[in-house]
């Protein structure tokens, strides 16, 4: 009986891993590594890509902030450079 229970537990664990849905509720204390303690909630996937919760973000949209930051940094750099050369802040 004991052997069967172990097998059953192992099978259940394998099933859980395959499904990516732990049987216990998420309380934030079961860590994979220091600082990495998130678990999927029961009934929810480990990864949302390809699941019904996949927001399917546009790559173009995701990169717009980075592009905006780079553009601002370049404009600011030129302004400061000119300031150092001319003593006048042009905007």
């Amino acid at each position: 009986m004991k052997k069967l229970n172990v097998l059953a537990a192992a099978g259940s664990a394998a099933l859980m891993l395959a499904m990516g849905t732990p049987a216990i509720a998420y309380d934030g204390t079961q860590c994979r590594a220091p600082g990495d303690c998130w678990q999927a909630k029961p009934g929810f996937p480990e990864k949302i890509e390809g699941s019904k919760y996949d927001p399917k973000h546009s790559e173009v949209e995701l990169n717009k902030q980075t592009q905006a930051m780079n553009a601002m940094e370049e404009r600011n750099r030129k302004r400061a450079e000119n300031f150092k050369k001319t003593g006048t802040w042009n905007y």
Partner: peptide
């Protein structure tokens, strides 16, 4: 306090590019 987490977590604790937004 290494148990707070140290390196690599700004990417590994997000799925895909979600960290960008």
């Amino acid at each position: 306090n290494p148990h707070y987490g140290q390196k690599g977590l700004g990417l590994s604790t997000w799925e895909g590019d979600a960290w960008k937004i």
